[in-house]
Design a protein around this nucleic acid. Structure first.
Lengths: 339, 339
DNA sequence: TTGAGGTTTTGAGACGATTCAAAAGAATCT
DNA sequence: AGATTCTTTTGAATCGTCTCAAAACCTCAA
């Protein structure tokens, strides 16, 4: 009902508002007796500090925004958990926003976060063109790009997606595959483009002996993966690839489902390798091979960089941190029994 | 850098701050010419409204908190997406907080949300005892319980978990199982207790012909499900249950993994049924049977109730909305081939 | 008793936007 | 022109907290 303010507390404790504020922020400079009186008043009134007013006065916020491409993808949930674990130690709040791959939604979230004057923003942008982001930065909100390359105007943490694609491709080639399909999404998403470039370079290194097909979906979801899987399963065996490298594990799971529902055996009829190594990958119908990224670490590092920038804006130099992916081989890309 | 304020805009546009505020909030009462001048000034300065100051003055916030038990569980992500879709239409922000089943974390999140003076809170509480929540409500923050029964002091949306447990139990009994295990979690979590009570009632209805075992894990995670699965797989066949009803799909997936890694066939050696019907359930090694809850609807209804309460605090009557779960039968509980 | 030095407490501005009564300006009618 | 009504614009007060210079209070020594 009636939310109490510092003034009412001051009245009840028979001190000035300045003293109450001191008790809240620098209790050590207040004499024990008054401090006690103030605490009692706070308790009796059920006073809860108004962080909004505090923020307005102090000018800096204790929350950071994290804008991800898809909350339904456990990869991003893990990144968020990493970020939150660090934020917790700096009593900072992380607000998770989902752009769902839609530039409009992304922009609305950024608007909202800027209006809230958050301390900074961690974002996996939908598009590579980020003039909008640059304006945001110019206006004073620090930004760290997550899982995406920086332009030098901001910090970034990323995993070498090209290398990841290459590792996946090399693995499939080494397993004897000569007809590989990249099951990807919108090439406007940098990660997708890089993973594709990576597998393409592995194929190129095989000196023409390997063929690379490419399927492109409008989004990196289970449903889209399944849709592409259906189309592939419908092809005459001779035209089918013998292996699919999916742009992420969600697509790989969908693709796998499609194989199963058409009676195609994985990995014998078709091998699959995903990307991200989300926890569900290991629990799939056929445990999925996947390119692993250090998910929590990505989130932790991102917010570390942000906090660093906020703490010392002056001498801060933007940095680009890049991690290496590694390959987790499971049954979905095991050696073919009939090869 | 320099974030601009309404005053600078007013200066540049040669109007008073009141007029700028009017342009922002009630443009129709401002003459087109001035309005245009103000917009230009806003654009030229890159002015972004300070929502913090606005909130302080106006007194009501445009964000609601959603505190869930486990962000890593796609069930809650779906609930969140449902809530967000409604919030979007009321340009309101949903901040997602993860209590991770820890009362301490939950409380810290509630503190923070209250300090931010959010418009209201949607929560799936960790514990049934919610005196803390009641104080929060008494102090003026509206709360809607999600997937949890209300005490009458607040609205709630829930799914009939007892019925869900009963449906699952009846299904397994009908499939010929006579030794059923409930793979559950902390009974302090109401959902777990109810699902257990439900399956127990189904067993009781079978008139002593069916035996119910119970395993209790400290958390409802994939890892805990796997751990219990390992223990069950290690039992001599005669002591093993023939079916497992898991408190949620995460546990069911873990349990299933354990069966697979010990060479036990599902459903022939042991049938499994989960709860929530998350998207990954259908994509599992053996597609999981599961008790489905209307996940997005739960979130949507919860925020509807909250918005209703906030809009008309006077004549608002707290309501308890209860949905019915339904059973999705897949391969993991198919008829046993050897029965 | 006075003064110096130290510790506590005070209270008047901010912070940035919104509100609203009142002033100013336009338009219409006698 | 003057009175009346309607439309725009103004600017001071306000939301709740923090800050900081100044005031008040202590203690101890000369």
């Amino acid at each position: 009902m009636a939310t109490r303010n510092i003034k009412e507390v001051a009245q009840l404790a028979r001190v000035s508002v300045g003293t109450v504020s001191n008790v809240l922020n620098r209790p050590e400079i207040v004499s024990p007796a008054t401090r006690e009186r103030v605490f009692e008043a706070i308790k009796k009134l059920g006073f809860v500090r108004n962080e909004v007013a505090r923020h307005l006065r102090v000018g800096r916020s204790r929350t950071v925004g994290l804008v991800v491409l898809d909350v339904a993808n456990p990869f991003f949930v893990d990144v968020a958990q990493g970020a939150e674990s660090v934020a917790d130690d700096h009593d900072t709040m992380v607000v998770l926003c989902n752009s769902a791959g839609d530039p409009g939604r992304e922009r609305r979230h950024l608007d909202q976060l800027e209006q809230q004057r958050v301390m900074g923003i961690l974002i996996t942008p939908v598009e590579t063109d980020n003039t909008w982001l640059e304006e945001l930065i110019a206006r004073g909100t620090p930004v760290v790009l997550v899982d995406s390359p920086a332009t030098g105007l901001q910090c970034s943490v990323a995993v070498d997606d090209r290398l990841g694609g290459q590792i996946a491709g090399a693995h499939l080639i080494e397993r004897g595959h000569r007809r590989i399909m990249f099951v990807g999404g919108p090439p406007s998403i940098k990660q997708v483009a890089d993973r594709h470039a990576g597998v393409a370079s592995a194929v190129a290194a095989a000196d023409g002996a390997v063929e690379l097909l490419t399927a492109t979906a409008p989004a990196l979801t289970v449903a889209e993966g399944r849709a592409i899987g259906e189309r592939v399963a419908a092809l005459p065996p001779a035209e089918r690839p013998t292996a699919a490298f999916c742009a992420n594990d969600m697509m790989a799971l969908g693709f796998l489902q499609a194989m199963a529902s058409h009676g195609l055996r994985v990995p014998d009829d078709l091998a699959i390798i995903g990307y991200d190594d989300i926890d569900f990958a290991a629990a799939a119908a056929v445990p999925l091979s996947s390119v692993r990224q250090p998910r929590e670490l990505l989130g932790r590092t991102a917010i570390d960089l942000l906090l660093e920038e906020v703490a010392e804006p002056e001498q801060h130099r933007h940095r680009q941190v890049i991690f290496q992916p590694d390959l987790v081989v499971r049954e979905s890309s095991a050696m073919r029994r009939d090869a």
